[in-house]
């Protein structure tokens, strides 16, 4: 499988108290656990991103508990009201225990 790489889109600047839109996408097969191997007839084990979290300056702002019905290359778009400058941290948790994360800075005011 391709190397898992998160992509996020966060505005670089915002006004204090502005509600901004954040978009995230991560390349992942999201193997549902419901498919059969065409050759062996065996079920292919489930392997999905089961959790996504977004934190701002260490505080949780948005999260999702994810099931196999979320499409391959999971995409989440959501809003955040940013009170001050700081750093977003986004984390995806894989069924195999690995976590993928990335950070983005935003400047508020100024």
């Amino acid at each position: 499988m391709a190397k898992v790489k998160p992509r996020v889109k966060v505005p670089k600047k915002a006004e204090a108290g502005e509600v901004i839109t954040i978009k995230t996408l991560i390349n992942h097969k999201m193997e549902s656990g419901l498919r059969k191997d065409k050759k062996t007839g065996e079920l292919i084990p489930k392997k999905i991103i089961n959790k996504f979290t977004a934190e701002f300056n260490g505080k949780p702002v948005f999260s999702a508990d994810v099931r196999p019905a979320v499409s391959a290359n999971p995409y989440f778009q959501f809003k955040v009201k940013v009170p001050e400058s700081g750093t977003f941290k986004f984390t995806w948790v894989d069924d195999d225990g690995s976590t993928y994360s990335t950070e983005k800075k935003i400047t508020v005011g100024g």
Binding site: A2, K3, K5, R7, K23, L25, I26, N27, A72, N73
Partner: peptide
Amino acid sequence: DFDNPGFTNVET
């Protein structure tokens, strides 16, 4: 381009 899932491959 962000919504386009083909762009993960473009980055690779």
